[in-house]
């Protein structure tokens, strides 16, 4: 009987420790940065995987934007564990609504599954702006909500990148595309843009395969494509990480002449674009993508309208090593 107390203490210790740990960790990333909560609107930025370089850049850009004028609005940044963690993102949206934010700017993990949660947010009077991955229009209209999309035109960007490659090819040349995750909207758009450019030239697209946005996987696919189609002239990769994987494959196969293009303009490819080993990539200004969304959200909060019917397009710039060719 007398050892009941220590045992009870021990029983409580673990949960207590967990609570303390979580509490200790929480404010660093998901905590709000801002001023007096009374007047300034509160904007929640709900991201996909904060493990991904692209989304980290996006979030950092938003934080920097908020820090420039801290009086203007309060920013709460949240992200999910990985890019496909739907359930977590839905509960993030619900939490944000529950804490009474004025606006949610969201990069949806899924273009359909997030719509019901966002409808509830709208019904609670929260302004919702969609960035990065466009919500499915049919689902939006069947749920009866309007959510403006602010984002880059991936298809036009990919077309521009493809055009740089096209200038180096002739009609009838054989090329292949290494795409992203096939269910992702931006992967589909980039593939379409690449296809537009290649079809316009009359090049033959011998194969389109997914590299899963990932270096090692793209490397396996690129190696296989090179052995299967020894006469391949070029590989169009839907992001730069996959272009790096393809570059390693080309070197391994002794195909230094293989032409490569990518997308995203990550730091790692800067020197390769400079040297022409990667012909072109596209910069969609990741650091500004969330900021554009936040700007629209603030406008909508200020005007009291809640939503806009017009989408807003953000710039995508072509990046090449050589400043002269095919810029227009």
């Amino acid at each position: 009987m007398k050892d009941l107390l220590p045992r009870l203490l021990l029983q409580c210790a673990l949960p207590l420790l967990l609570v303390l740990l979580t509490a200790g960790c929480a404010p660093s990333d998901s905590g709000s940065t801002g001023s007096d909560a009374g007047t300034a609107p509160r904007v929640a930025l709900v991201m996909k995987s904060l493990a991904n370089e692209f989304f980290v850049t996006m979030a950092d850009g938003a934080r920097a934007h908020q820090a420039e004028d801290p009086e203007r609005y309060e920013l709460i940044v949240n992200g999910t564990k990985d890019e496909s963690d739907l359930a977590q993102q839905v509960s993030l949206v619900e939490q944000m609504v529950a804490t009474g934010v004025d606006a949610i700017v969201i990069a949806p993990a899924d273009s359909k599954a997030l719509v019901p949660a966002l409808r509830k947010a709208r019904e609670a009077g929260v302004v919702v702006v969609n960035i990065d991955n466009r919500l499915d229009r049919e689902v939006l209209s069947s749920e009866g909500v309007e959510v403006p999309f602010v984002g880059p035109d991936n298809r036009a960007g990919a077309k521009a990148v493809g055009d740089v490659l096209a200038a180096r090819l002739e009609a009838g040349d054989r090329v292949a595309i290494i795409g992203g995750i096939p269910t992702a909207f931006n992967a589909q758009q980039r593939q379409a843009g690449f296809e537009d450019a290649m079809n316009e030239l009359g090049a033959e697209i011998v194969d389109v395969q997914s590299g899963g946005w990932e270096q090692a996987k793209a490397n396996v696919v690129a190696s296989a494509l090179l052995s299967e189609h020894p006469d391949l002239e070029a590989l169009l990769c839907a992001n730069d990480n996959m272009a790096l994987g393809a570059l390693a494959a080309a070197r391994q196969a002794g195909r230094d002449d293989l032409l490569l293009v990518g997308f995203d303009n990550i730091d790692a490819v800067a020197s390769l674009v400079e040297s022409g080993e990667i012909l072109a990539t596209a910069d969609q200004h990741a650091d500004q993508l969330a900021v554009y969304g936040i700007e629209l959200a603030l406008e909508l909060v200020a005007s009291g309208e809640g939503t806009a019917s017009e989408d807003r397009q953000t710039p995508v710039d072509l990046v090449t090593g050589d400043p002269s060719p095919a810029q227009e």
Binding site: A51, N52, Q215, L244, G245, A248, Q252
Partner: peptide, 13 residues
Amino acid sequence: QLGYLQSADPNAG
């Protein structure tokens, strides 16, 4: 993998 892909990717593996 670092040597093979000549780059270090935090998403590797």
